[in-house]
């Protein structure tokens, strides 16, 4: 009970062990998340296998500018989150809050751009259902996956934003010591959101443009 202070929780006897557990537990959860997105991406691939041309044509309609800028934004937020993980562990107060704040801001920028992208998709009528502009059979399936995958990813980002936001708020109030292992665990989760996007980006924006 001496080394950890208030960061230490039941049933752990040292903060080092508790930190190990938080990381390990989060990695297990990430495995689970990887299979969730893995299954969806596999379904995307399987369906694309039946309709390669239609998927390419449909992919050309995806907004690559938004997608690319968002990729850069999200990768940068992962960098700031990584800095935050180390800074909190080293109890560098100023760096911690700056990097956590930047992470939150970049996450919000991603969401904002995403919403603008969705609005532009809607204006083009890229919604499955009556009035869908593309003739090719199968093109509508691409957009079916698009509207299933990108909101699910955004939902995960909102989860990440709430977690990091909540932890930062607790730390700012002094209710959570900076060396709490929760920051590192939240960081791991944040990187997963990034990694998933790295798979979604080529699937959505690049696969239609690669061959022509």
């Amino acid at each position: 009970m001496n080394s950890g202070g208030e960061a230490l929780r039941e049933p752990w006897e040292s903060l080092r062990r508790q930190r190990e557990a938080a990381g390990f537990g989060m990695w297990l959860f990430l495995n689970s998340e990887a299979l969730l997105f893995g299954a969806l991406i596999a379904a995307f691939f399987a369906t694309r296998f039946y309709h390669p041309q239609a998927f390419e044509a449909a992919g050309k309609e995806a907004e690559i500018v938004y997608g690319t800028v968002n990729t850069l934004v999200l990768l940068t937020s992962s960098l700031t989150m990584a800095v935050a993980s180390f800074a909190t562990r080293a109890e560098l107060r100023r760096v911690s809050f700056w990097s956590l704040g930047l992470t939150l801001a970049l996450g919000l920028v991603f969401l904002g751009l995403k919403i603008m992208e969705w609005r532009s998709d809607l204006e083009k009528g890229m919604v499955p259902g009556p009035g869908f502009p593309m003739e090719q059979p199968g093109a509508v399936l691409f957009w079916g996956f698009y509207w299933a995958l990108t909101p699910l990813h955004a939902l995960h980002l909102i989860g990440g934003l709430s977690t990091v936001g909540f932890l930062t708020w607790q730390a700012a109030r002094g209710a959570r010591p900076l060396r709490s292992p929760a920051f590192e665990a939240a960081g791991l989760y944040w990187h997963l959101i990034d990694v998933v996007w790295i798979f979604l980006y080529p699937l959505i924006y690049l696969q239609g443009r690669a061959s022509s």
Binding site: A39, A43, Y50, P128
Partner: peptide, 26 residues
């Protein structure tokens, strides 16, 4: 999680009209 994925796709198709498994759309 794979069950979650498959059921989410059902929700997408039934609740939001996103064709994923619909043979009429391929």
């Amino acid at each position: 999680p794979v069950l979650t994925a498959s059921l989410l796709l059902i929700v997408a198709e039934r609740g939001f009209g996103l064709p994923v498994f619909d043979p009429a759309h391929g």
